[in-house]
Structure formats: structure tokens, C-alpha cells
């Protein structure tokens, strides 16, 4: 078989393959265009309009953005609440789940069952999880009840106090999300190359030293991934405050996403909501980019 015979054949084959590839990829392309690209473009447009759910839409330029920063009474508190939540939630959640993954070592009996147990709140509906916590946090609920019975101490009304309400939103969220990062870290720990661990052990590394100098650097890509994903979810927190505190007392626990939801679907100001959503997106992008820059200092991709 000569070369001259093959080249044109390969050309037609390639053309046929391209055609078939188009067939394979077109449902995804069409769906993505309709349900992602169009909404993203539309969202940019909406941000520059006074866009009530029903009625006349008028172009207002940057007014929505200006209005958010200068006139909207809830916007700055919502920003602050989102940051406070993320600052408390991310380190506690990542730290505890790492501790848990390390504690559930291969020597622990029943660790498969324990993993499932810690993972359950991740997959049960958030609404149900929140209801359970809401019941326990009532003034006459389990927490205060136990405290009074055992220690004779009356606890504050958690959900009615601005600071306590935020702490409880964080606590409930940590409880709910712990299992996810735990499994990410467990997967990373299980894939540690045996040879490296063995070599470190022969060199006398034990306990904390082993953890700090060998294990943590080796799972640092997973740590980095988990921190970024946890931060992004934290900035998007919605259901927990929405149902646990309603964003209250006042607006003490109202995060940015709840603010967006309220603007758009309570006050029917879709333009303002779209603008606020873009601010949230910008914050996520900037913080993610910063973390990617910082990773060079502590993330090791050797293996």
C-alpha cells in the first residue's frame, strides 16, 4: 500500500470523524449555549437595567452598582456577613475534617462505618439538617435544656442574638459539611506512596513530625483544592441562614446570596439582583486567584 493511496483516505476519514464528533457534542453545546451562555450574557445586560419582574425595563447604566454601594441598606452588611461566615467557616471546616481524616487511620476498627456516618449530613437535604438544628437551638431546646439541667446555667437565646446567631450558622454548617472534605483528605491519605512513608519512618519520623514534614506536604494539593472549594461554597452560603435565622436578627446573618435572592424574588428587582450577583462572582474570582498565587509557597506537586 502506497502513501499516495492513504493520504486522501485519511482526509475523508478525518472529515467523517469531524462530522460524527459534531453529532456527539451538539446536545451538550446546545444546552450549554441556551442554559449557560445566554443567561450569562443576559445577566450582564440585566445588571445595567432597571428590570422589574413585570413591567417596563429601562436602561440605567451603572446605577444598579452605584445604588448597591451607596443606597442599599442591606448590601454592606450582607458583604460583611458573607466574609465573616467564610473567615470562620473555612479554617474550622478544613481543619476539623483534616483532623478527622487523619484520626480515622487504617488501624481504627469500623472506620468504613464511621466515614459513612460523618458523611450522612452532606447528602441529606440541607433543609432537613437546618430544621433539626433549629429545634435544638430554641430557647427551650436541647442545648439550653442540658445546660440548665447539668450546670444550672441559662444559655443565651442563640438565634435572637446577632453574634450568637452567626456562630450557630457557622457551627451548623461545619457539622453539615465536615464529611465532604474528610473524604477528600481520606482519599489523598490513602494514595500516599508507601515508599516515601516507609523511608521517612526509617529515618525516624514519628507522630507530629511525620504529619508536619511528610504527610501534610504530600497531601498539600488536596488541601489546596479543598480550601478553594470550601471557600467558594462559603461565599455562596444561603440555605443555612435563610432557614435557621431568616438572615436575622435584623440583617445580622444575611449573606450576599440571600440579599440577591431577596432583591430579585421578594422585591422583584431583577436588575439590582443581577448586579449584586456579578459582585459576588468578582469576589469569588479575586479570592480564588489570590489563593492560586499563594499556593506556590505551600503546595507541592512532586508525585
Amino acid at each position: 500500500m502506497s502513501n499516495t493511496n492513504q493520504i486522501p483516505r485519511r482526509g475523508t476519514l478525518a472529515r467523517a470523524e469531524s462530522r460524527q464528533a459534531l453529532g456527539f457534542v451538539s446536545p451538550a453545546l446546545a444546552g450549554l449555549a441556551l442554559f449557560t451562555v445566554v443567561p450569562v450574557v443576559l445577566s450582564i445586560v440585566m445588571g445595567f437595567f432597571n428590570w422589574p419582574t413585570f413591567g417596563e425595563k429601562t436602561f440605567v447604566g451603572f446605577d444598579n452598582y452605584v445604588k448597591l454601594f451607596t443606597q442599599s441598606p442591606d448590601f454592606w452588611p450582607a458583604l460583611r456577613n458573607t466574609f465573616v461566615f467564610a473567615l470562620l467557616y473555612v479554617p474550622i471546616s478544613v481543619g476539623l475534617s483534616l483532623l478527622l481524616a487523619i484520626s480515622l487511620s487504617a488501624r481504627i476498627r469500623g472506620r468504613g462505618m464511621l466515614r459513612v456516618l460523618f458523611f450522612i449530613p452532606v447528602v441529606t437535604p440541607m433543609v432537613a439538617n437546618v430544621l433539626v438544628w433549629k429545634m435544638m437551638l430554641q430557647p427551650q431546646g436541647l442545648f439550653n435544656g442540658l445546660s440548665q439541667t447539668w450546670f444550672g446555667v441559662e444559655l443565651p437565646n442563640f438565634l435572637a442574638d446577632p453574634q450568637w446567631a452567626m456562630i450557630m450558622v457557622v457551627m451548623m454548617s461545619v457539622w453539615q459539611g465536615l464529611g465532604y472534605n474528610m473524604l477528600i483528605f481520606s482519599a489523598a491519605l490513602e494514595q500516599l506512596p508507601e515508599s516515601v512513608v516507609e523511608a521517612a519512618r526509617i529515618d525516624g519520623a514519628r507522630g507530629f513530625r511525620m504529619l508536619w514534614s511528610v504527610t501534610l506536604p504530600m497531601i498539600s494539593p488536596s488541601l489546596f483544592f479543598a480550601s478553594i472549594m470550601t471557600m467558594i461554597t462559603a461565599l455562596q452560603v444561603f440555605v443555612q441562614p435563610q432557614l435557621l435565622t431568616g438572615g436575622g436578627p435584623g440583617n445580622a446573618t444575611q449573606p450576599l446570596v440571600q440579599f440577591i435572592y431577596n432583591q430579585g424574588f421578594k422585591f422583584q428587582e431583577l436588575g439590582l439582583a443581577a448586579a449584586a450577583a456579578w459582585i459576588l462572582f468578582a469576589i469569588i474570582i479575586i479570592l480564588t486567584a489570590l489563593q492560586f498565587r499563594a499556593q506556590k509557597k505551600w503546595v507541592h506537586y512532586e508525585h
Binding site: 449557560t36 443567561p39 440585566m46 467558594i232 430579585g264
Partner: peptide
């Protein structure tokens, strides 16, 4: 095209739901 696909992964749900509601209407 694949890079465009990946880029859409970054868009948070909150940015999408508002225009999506309009599209649904």
C-alpha cells in the same frame, strides 16, 4: 471549545438563576 466548556464551570449558580428565571418566563 473545551476551554469554553471549562470556563463556564466558574460561573456560580447565583449569577445564573436570575437571568434563568427570566428565560423561564
Amino acid at each position: 471549545v473545551f476551554v469554553i466548556f471549562l470556563a463556564t464551570l466558574m460561573v456560580p449558580q447565583e449569577v445564573l438563576v436570575i437571568p434563568m428565571f427570566q428565560v423561564m418566563q
